[in-house]
Simulated scan of single mutants.
Amino acid sequence: MQCDYFDANACRSCSLMGTPYEEQLRRKDAAVRGVLAAHIDPQMWLAPYRNTESGFRNKAKLAIGGTIATPTLGILDHGLGVDLRDCGLYEPALAYTFADLATFITTARLAPYDLATRRGELKNLLVTVSPDGEVMLRFVLRSQEPIARIRKYLPGLLAACPAIVAVSANILPEHRAVLEGDREIPLTERETLSMRLNDITMHVRPQSFFQTSTDIAAALYRQAASWAANHRPPDAWDLYCGVGGFALHLAAEGIAVTGVETSGEAIASASLSAADAQLDAQFVAADSLSFAAQHGAPGLVVVNPPRRGVGDLAAWLEHSTVSHIIYSSCNAASLATDLDAMPSYRARAARLFDMFPQTDHHEVMVLLQRR
């Protein structure tokens, strides 16, 4: 893949840009295998799951810079906006909205937030596209002051870009390096985005996490469901479940499953999806370790933790009666640490999923069985 932004040194986020994709995949697979060599026999590795080199990102996290008249949508470099509207990583249906969004910023007089002076209102635009081409749009604002203008001009934006079906304002008053705040204000009647994967539709709410690459997310869910179906556990937990992708796919295999996640928005999304699909999946808003400590262990546990890994949950799993674990990780190093804490389990299968082409980031999933 060739990128003008990378060549011009305007954005260097993609550290492997210019490296042939086959070489990228080989390097990542070898690196992950190396980090996990003490825990996973080479014969247990499946072939890495490929992605497309470009056009794979289903979400854009656009920092807004520039001025009302000439806004930039992309990143901030030393506080100055760098426009990345033509970045080749975005799905085409997502990138198609950017010109209309820039025009809307000018029309609604949304002043970009200035890091140096701490003035202005619009900090970020968070845009997500579904496999069916529908779009969720979120305005991250310093205050509620611009909302009246957004509401006034929103019908024009929706007419110009009918793919946008759900819009909200997120309020982030603090001056800190985070993407969004806690408060979300719906601006359209529809508040969810329908993400249809593997014949299961997930209803994603504004503050719910969803994987960056839709195709790779679908592959992860298929792989986990296949592994689970082979062992037919009587029941299962999906810990750190997010919007319930793993849980819903296990439920589709006839497995009674409970999903656990701290985010109330994610649990609301997952519960809606389960009810809509009439699947035997229950969802609970709770800390995964606290939930595990208060309930009898199931036959299978799926974990998809943040980069830091499962932490103290590893010790609970080690001393539990759980027979199988499916561990999906975005950080092989923390996965290795967690496997150190679970010596009673051995890997029966492992696979790299290339969630983030053009970068060193990875997703790896391992099937563990108690010895």
Rank of each mutant, 00 (worst) to 15 (best):
E134G: 03
T258C: 13
A159H: 05
A160T: 03
S143M: 03
C161Q: 15
A159E: 13
L158G: 02
E180C: 04
C161T: 15
S226T: 14
D238N: 10
I164R: 10
R183N: 03
R190H: 13
G242T: 08
D235E: 13
Y221S: 10
S168V: 00
V167L: 06
D199Q: 14
T212L: 12
V243T: 15
R232P: 01
G133W: 11
M202Y: 07
E265L: 00
T212E: 09
G264I: 06
T262G: 03
S226D: 15
A160C: 07
E180M: 13
R232T: 13
Q211M: 08
L197C: 09
Q207Y: 00
P146L: 07
G242C: 08
P162N: 02
I150H: 03
L141G: 06
I216D: 04
H231Q: 13
L158Y: 05
T262E: 13
N230P: 00
M202R: 05
A160W: 02
L248S: 12
A219M: 10
H231M: 05
L141R: 05
T192A: 14
W237T: 08
S143R: 07
E184D: 15
E184C: 11
G245Q: 08
V140F: 08
I150E: 01
E189P: 00
S130I: 11
L250H: 13
G264C: 04
A177T: 04
S168L: 01
A247T: 05
E265M: 06
T201S: 14
I255S: 06
V135F: 06
V260C: 12
E145Q: 15
L220R: 10
V257I: 10
R190L: 12
A169F: 02
A228L: 08
H175P: 01
I150G: 03
R149H: 10
E134D: 15
V257D: 09
E145R: 15
S168W: 01
T188D: 07
W227C: 12
T214L: 15
Q223C: 02
L239N: 11
L158A: 04
A160K: 14
T258Y: 04
